[in-house]
Nucleic acid binder design. Sequence first.
DNA 1: CTATTACCCTATAGATTTAATAGAGTAAAC
DNA 2: GTTTACTCTATTAAATCTATAGGGTAATAG
Lengths: 136, 136
Amino acid sequence: MLSKKTKYGIKALTFLAGQVDNEPVQIAEIAKHENISQKFLESILLSMRRTGFLSSKKGKGGGYYLIKRPSEIQMTEVIRVLEGPIAMIPCVSLNFYEKCDDCPDENKCSVHKLMISVRDSALQVYRNTTLDDLIS
Amino acid sequence: MLSKKTKYGIKALTFLAGQVDNEPVQIAEIAKHENISQKFLESILLSMRRTGFLSSKKGKGGGYYLIKRPSEIQMTEVIRVLEGPIAMIPCVSLNFYEKCDDCPDENKCSVHKLMISVRDSALQVYRNTTLDDLIS
DNA sequence: CTATTACCCTATAGATTTAATAGAGTAAAC
DNA sequence: GTTTACTCTATTAAATCTATAGGGTAATAG
């Protein structure tokens, strides 16, 4: 299940990508336009600012704006920041690997085998999709 | 994230598929061999019995056994029974569709667009994988 | 300089889901 | 008719997700 955090985050990015001249947009405006709890959105935008997708400007006329071109923002990065691992199980995660404590040998594990295929197919989608692809 | 329920369920199915002559196996034996809480496994096996993957035999010498050939058990079915929707968001689910209450038009929604691609790629994997593929 | 605007940060609480446990009940086999 | 092993309901503990509250701080305009 995709978390609301990720859902809202992608919607906010899309909204920012659609601005003319990449003008800063206030949190309140994004929240209203996308039907998102403003306070919740605040924390989401903040975490994306920290990872370098966007930046913010304080004071009057301030707000959030993208610091990369939409075509340069890959979904792999977005998902990993907002949702966490792309893999459905830690033992097949490339960036968040963890051993299963109930599994003596993961090379013989049927779940492991299946989840590698699922992870690879998801990765292929996320790698080939940029923010730009989601606008048009 | 894949739930333990699904993980355990697939492991149990794999274990049963590996039995000679498809002899019934007791819950306790599966639980021990796969490091699963016995009571939890009970409920998992029960739900899979109800959907027709396996059957059970009571009394002495009883247990669970497959009623389909491993090559006839598709992962799409297994995942849907144990995990629920394959889609990561209800508005792109084929079998569990639900409208997003925050989204005025899902055809214009960037998340919707992305999640359709992800769903399709996952479906392709699950449709092309049977229990038999996970054994060898 | 100062008032306003709008981002920044921490803490917390309610709701939901997941995972596991307990215990009594029932059907089949020998 | 006793044993074995599946069946079913209820409950609980833990974790996670979503949202809210509220004070703090930096930048800008005039």
